[in-house]
Design a binder for these strands. Structure first.
Lengths: 343, 343
DNA sequence: TGTATTGACTAAATCGGTTTAGGTTTCTAT
DNA sequence: ATAGAAACCTAAACCGATTTAGTCAATACA
């Protein structure tokens, strides 16, 4: 490992000051009226010695790392990996890298990750938080930490945030079922119960139901713990199946729940949509060729990511974000396929 | 944004040297025989002033960032997002963060990302490379950059590497088809053609076929460009369908290709396995409830990631890696479902 | 009594850049 | 001839930790 060439080496070798070399490296030479020939000499020497600036030293001095932190519940969930990918693309285009952190819906882990990322001086954070404590984020705001809450938001929170119309999406799903005269409806959510999106979806769904005087009986209101979705959905569906009292439709509140429901309905030989109609929140490409193909609420992942990135960049660059931009809800679409259509 | 408390602040405030504070912070105080009471005083002051070490300054001095780089073709591909997740877990347990980079199978982008990560002084790299140039990686080796090639490897390469038995997996798939008397077989690969896994799979598949004197005619050997898999697979299948000369089976070389094939066979109303049997490389949970359920070669993602991480950590810690550990191939499994069984 | 040894601690150098606060020349205008 | 302005460049401080190479006083030993 030959010792790295430093800026001082270049300076000495060309016979100019470190300041000048630094200016050339950062493209500030012209602005400082440095002679073009001197600039060329420096650039040639940089080439010759194969100098590469030490980003750590630079970051140490400037306080900028050109790194962003992305905190989500689980990066292997398609929804989040797509967000990650989009974000990464926007970041790459602007010279930023992104560090990923999966929280497993664990609040303490999330806080620890945020602490660590801050200690590492990332320039900004994009967070899909598992918490619902506004005060925690308001502290981030008042400490001036650039961050955007993505996907999940909650009341009383002053952070810039971008999410999706979870309430409206779930309401669409409910209305879609109700229009078909379906009234015996179940729902599968995940626990813990402090996840804002899930709660919004429940609210939206129930609000539409109550307009038609329908409600979800407790035995059809299932909570599957985040870390054991598969078994919990299996057990719940089995219980319902054996009870003989089956709903006509089930609404699953995220893609993992939908997959699990699909899997175990099939195992129980419960036909969808004939026996139980199914509609899920969050669309996945595979839904179009599962048996049955699955209806779903589709989220605008790309626009969500783009918006979050831009809002974060504005904060990093100390630009003002107008009040109406500080909080936005993107509309969702309903994609109706076989699983939810009974007529 | 109140100015951050520095180590010097603590030192001055307690009335000791920075050295001492640093030793306390890093748990080296006892080893240096520092009085326990002095230690306590320092620790109390750290609490009181809420001191947090500046990781950038520390990293600048020590050259360690406790950050790893993960380079893959596309983080939103389930295969890679699962690797990312596993890696992140191992990394987190050891105090490392991971930066993700998607290359889109673009060699130049990959090189640029590696350059950037090195400039940012990540402690190590885990790379699923799109290249097949041994010399590039041998340079990394001789420069002493800790790195592990994961998933994809190639000849003449001295880097530590962990991959999967792509050759054997594809051979299994071929034999599975051949045993059923299927001889008219097509294959869908991706381009560019410098991806080692894809090439190994082709080799393995063809080697099994040639044992039975079967070969793949050019019109059934499809290459779908990485960035337009969907349309290319669609076009190719349509062409084959319209030609009237259809294979009895198709082997798709990765999960995206399998999904695309499934989607368009369905659109063309080509029944699987009756009209065309289908088997793909890389298993995905959805395959078990698609129509038909899809047979696949399953890769040991978790073991792959674990091994890669451990090998990287060894390098970072300057431990010796025995020769037989420097290169490993993990076995794969075949998961037979409906799509490939014609009897 | 003089020399080691031990225990407790520290001053100063260092990492590699960026930033601040200038300093020379040379040219131009009076 | 000379003040003032341009044009071009630089020395030194600085960011916040770690590391090196000690110091100093008290005790132990011969």
């Amino acid at each position: 490992m030959a010792k790295k060439v430093s800026l001082a080496d270049i300076a000495k070798s060309v016979g100019v000051s470190k300041t000048l070399v630094s200016m050339v490296v950062n493209g500030k030479a012209d602005a400082h009226g440095i002679n073009v020939e001197t600039q060329k000499k420096v650039r040639d020497k940089i080439q010759e010695l194969n100098y590469e600036p030490n980003a750590l030293a630079r970051g140490f001095r400037t306080g900028k790392t050109h790194t962003l932190g992305l905190i989500v519940s689980d990066i292997s969930n398609q929804f989040y990996s797509r967000i990650a990918r989009n974000l990464e693309d926007y970041a790459w285009a602007r010279g930023y890298s992104v560090v990923i952190c999966s929280t497993d819906e664990n609040i303490d882990k999330e806080k620890e990750q945020i602490r660590l990322l801050r200690e590492r001086k990332v320039d900004g954070l994009i967070i899909s938080s598992s918490q619902m404590e506004a005060s925690y984020f308001n502290e981030l705001v008042s400490e001036g930490v650039p961050h955007v809450l993505i996907d999940r938001t909650f009341d009383g929170m002053q952070s810039v945030n971008v999410s999706v119309d979870n309430f409206g999406g779930a309401r669409m799903a409910a209305r879609h079922l109700l229009t078909q005269g379906i009234k015996k409806i179940g729902i599968i959510a995940i626990s813990p119960d402090h996840i804002s999106t899930i709660n919004e979806r429940i609210r939206g769904f129930e609000s539409a139901l109550s307009e038609s005087n329908v409600s979800i009986p407790p035995e059809w209101f299932i909570r599957a713990p985040f870390d054991s979705i598969d078994e919990s959905v299996k057990d719940a569906l089995q219980r319902i199946y054996q009870s003989g009292n089956m709903p006509e439709a089930i609404f699953t509140l995220n893609n993992n729940l939908t997959a699990a429901a699909l899997k175990y309905l099939r195992k129980l030989s419960v036909k969808s949509p004939e026996d139980i109609a199914l509609i899920g929140f969050d669309d996945v490409i595979y839904y179009s060729f599962t048996q049955p193909s699955v209806s779903a609420i589709e989220q605008p992942v790309d626009r969500l990511s783009e918006k979050a990135f831009n809002l974060l960049l504005s904060q990093i660059n100390k630009e003002d974000i107008p009040a109406h931009e500080r909080s936005s809800y993107l509309p969702v679409d309903i994609v109706i396929r076989e699983s939810s259509v009974r007529t």
